[in-house]
Simulated scan of single mutants.
Amino acid sequence: MTEPIVVVGAALLNDGHLLAARRSAPPELAGRWELPGGKVERGETPEAALVRELREELGVETEAVERIPGEWPLRAPYVLHVWTARLHPDSPAPKPLQDHDALRWLTPAELWDVEWLDQDVPAVRKIEPRLGRS
């Protein structure tokens, strides 16, 4: 049995809002929303992967804060781990640079206004109670 490959997702929190990113690729995911992130590379910690992926995908400088309990299956052999993250004070505003065509800062009341990717839904449910504490 192969070891699962970890994909990190970012619950990027700012002033009680959660950042959602709309996929532009691949075609079967385009138009749906996700927590930004990507694969952990060999020799990389999940926290370092999260910071790197957010820099590449959104052009921001961030810090991983804490892992959300749980692991969610993606297509084999990938599994999703989600971390809360925050922007560095001097970071530019996020922009959709890779694989996304729109970003939204969602309030707790707007959290379910977007069509989340199926695999992100359980993680977003775990993040929801934290929005008032970010």
Rank of each mutant, 00 (worst) to 15 (best):
G70M: 06
R86D: 09
E61Y: 11
E128H: 11
S91I: 10
E41R: 15
I68D: 09
P89Y: 04
V51N: 01
L58H: 03
V8L: 00
L29N: 11
L58Y: 08
L35N: 05
V40P: 05
A30Y: 02
R130S: 09
S134D: 12
V79M: 12
P108Y: 09
A21P: 01
I68P: 07
P94D: 04
P77C: 09
T45Y: 03
E41D: 15
W33C: 02
A109F: 07
D120M: 06
L80S: 00
R55L: 14
D90I: 08
W33H: 03
G43Y: 08
E41N: 12
V65A: 08
T62F: 09
V79K: 06
L19S: 00
E41A: 13
L35W: 03
L58Q: 07
P89F: 12
P77L: 06
M1V: 06
E66T: 15
V121D: 07
E71Q: 14
A48N: 15
A48W: 08
P36I: 02
T84S: 12
A76V: 12
D120E: 11
E28C: 11
L29C: 06
L13Y: 02
R23W: 11
D15Q: 13
R42W: 11
V65Y: 03
L29I: 02
P77A: 08
L35I: 04
V121Y: 10
Y78W: 13
D120C: 14
A109Q: 11
L29A: 13
L111C: 00
S91A: 08
D101C: 04
E128Y: 07
Y78K: 11
R86W: 12
L111D: 02
L35V: 09
D99F: 15
V60Y: 04
E57C: 05
A10L: 04
A21Q: 06
R125K: 15
G16F: 01
W33S: 04
D101V: 05
A76K: 15
L117C: 09
A49E: 01
L103P: 10
L50R: 06
L18Q: 00
L50F: 01
L13R: 03
A20V: 04
I68E: 05
G16P: 03
L19N: 04
Q119S: 14
M1I: 12
I127F: 02
V124C: 10
E110Q: 14
S91N: 07
R32D: 10
D101A: 06
L19R: 01
H100N: 13
R133M: 15
V121C: 10
P89W: 05
T62I: 08
R42K: 14
R32P: 03
L19C: 00
R42Q: 13
R104S: 11
